[in-house]
């Protein structure tokens, strides 16, 4: 078995035997942070390349082909290029806010991974308010976008920042409400317990008990991650690039990074809450390690998000708002009521 938990346990024991307890805490905190950062970075590098390939093939192009086999080194080459770029700060920018916006965005994107179980026992901290924590922390992104838009002293940035604030706050409501159905059934907020309850065959997954909740969640999450068809904060054709127009070099790369991390985050949440987390779809497939199942499901979900992006056109601002408040919100409420009836009846 290739489960990763025993490896980490062994490392922990080793650290305990050579270091005092205080230092063990410090080392394990930084260690897990570094591991998550590293793993997520690898995923982002892969996603950027993958998205370019998927979009290209959907348009019957090849996408990057020149760097390495089918251009797999393209993202790394891009990263090197971005590192060499001049770091510009607009003259009238609000310097402090301008500098901190990408950092806030980056950190907010990563904090969600504290309570996501990557596999059996592979979780940084199983908070008993896991879902609440994730909902709270992912909304932090809106602050960073607003900071970036405001501090750049550029009308396009400001418009993009305002739009993103309006959009993310609107979609946060149906998103949170759509998760309430799951919480009602699971009767817990802890991510690990929710996953454990979905054990066994795939029909135990909550997506089959909460189809409406899942649809609302997925649409709202797409909007939350600023992805097409809800990418009006960065609508290239209207706002040049939205809130990050004035950013260049590594600061821009951090925004970019955060965007793709968010894509992984919403996929991971969807998998954890609706698709059985690390569980295999059938008990006899358990011989494949749990983290592979989790990663596989996440990749599938990320692919679906890319698929959306390269299929649908962007909606207008008013359509976006109307859709959130007039359609998604009532649907989320209907879902809660139906779930309530369901729990009462069965």
């Amino acid at each position: 078995m290739l489960e990763l938990r025993p490896i980490f346990d062994a490392i922990g024991e080793f650290l305990n035997s050579i270091l005092p307890e205080f230092w063990v805490t410090i080392v394990s905190a930084f260690g897990t942070g570094a591991i998550i950062l590293g793993v997520a970075s690898v995923f982002v590098l892969f996603f950027v390349w993958w998205e370019r390939k998927v979009s290209a093939h959907m348009q019957q192009r090849y996408g990057p082909m020149r760097t390495g086999w089918h251009g797999w080194l393209q993202t790394i080459a891009d990263g090197v290029k971005l590192l060499q770029k001049e770091d510009l700060i607009p003259r009238d920018a609000d310097k402090l806010v301008y500098l901190f916006a990408p950092v806030v965005c980056f950190v907010a994107a990563f904090l969600a991974y504290v309570t996501i179980p990557f596999g059996e026992g592979l979780i940084v901290q199983d908070l008993n308010i896991g879902i609440l924590y994730i909902i709270a922390i992912t909304t932090f992104t809106v602050v960073s976008l607003l900071m970036a838009g405001w501090a750049s002293h550029n009308k396009w940035s400001l418009l993009g920042g305002m739009r993103s604030a309006a959009q993310i706050i609107s979609y946060e409501v149906p998103l949170s409400l759509s998760l309430i159905g799951v919480i009602m059934i699971a009767e817990t907020l802890s991510m690990v317990s929710i996953v454990v309850q979905q054990e066994g065959w795939f029909w135990n997954w909550y997506v089959f008990r909460q189809p409406l909740g899942f649809i609302v969640y997925y649409i709202a999450a797409t909007a939350e991650a600023n992805r097409t068809p809800f990418d009006i904060p960065e609508a290239e054709q209207e706002l040049v690039a939205g809130y990050n127009v004035e950013y260049s070099g590594m600061k821009w790369a951090m925004f970019f990074f955060a965007e793709y991390i968010n894509m992984l985050t919403i996929s991971a949440i969807a998998v954890t809450l609706f698709f059985g987390g690390w569980h295999a779809p059938a008990p006899f497939l358990d011989f494949i390690p749990s983290w592979i199942w989790f990663v596989g499901k996440c990749l599938l979900s990320v692919f679906v998000l890319m698929w959306f992006r390269w299929t649908y056109p962007r909606v207008r601002v008013d359509q976006l708002m109307a859709f959130a408040w007039k359609f998604m919100l009532p649907l989320a409420f209907v879902n809660i009521i139906l779930t309530g009836f369901g729990i009462y009846l069965f």
Partner: peptide, 17 residues
């Protein structure tokens, strides 16, 4: 729409390298 893009995903690209 999703079905159309999915079908196109597996077609041979028209690009000449």
């Amino acid at each position: 729409g999703l079905w159309v893009t999915f079908k196109h995903l597996f077609r041979k690209p028209v690009t000449l390298q």
